[in-house]
Amino acid sequence: MRLLTHNMLACNIKGVTKGFPLAIEVTKLETKESEMNPDFLRHIYPKLDWKALHDAAHTLGLNDIPEQVEPAMLEDEDFLQKFHHALLEVHLEEGALICPETNRRFPVTKGVPNMLLNEDEV
């Protein structure tokens, strides 16, 4: 699971109103290099909840993601590289996503979050 996906996911248990962002429990990380696409990063930037990305990156030990981003930075190659790395290259392979409201734990196994709800949660 990439942090882009983390930024997209929320706990959807019935009644939960603040199911985002999910806390991350890290057991194993993996880095898989990929080609950077600056246009994609610029396109995706407005969609992202930056604070969630920043906090998640820190949880994963990526401390070079700034707390705030100015649009001008999206033209800066060095920043884009860090952004790309945090958003798309670092994968949570083993661990869990935890709902901030209920503490429900969604396990991440072999890079795959299991977001299925129990019948009493829907």
């Binding site: 997209m8 985002f20 795959v112 299991n114 977001m115």
Partner: peptide, 18 residues
Amino acid sequence: AQHGHEVFVADALHLPHR
């Protein structure tokens, strides 16, 4: 996942996407 796709297990009737 083995093919390198970004995926998760979820029910189409209860999507976890924002």
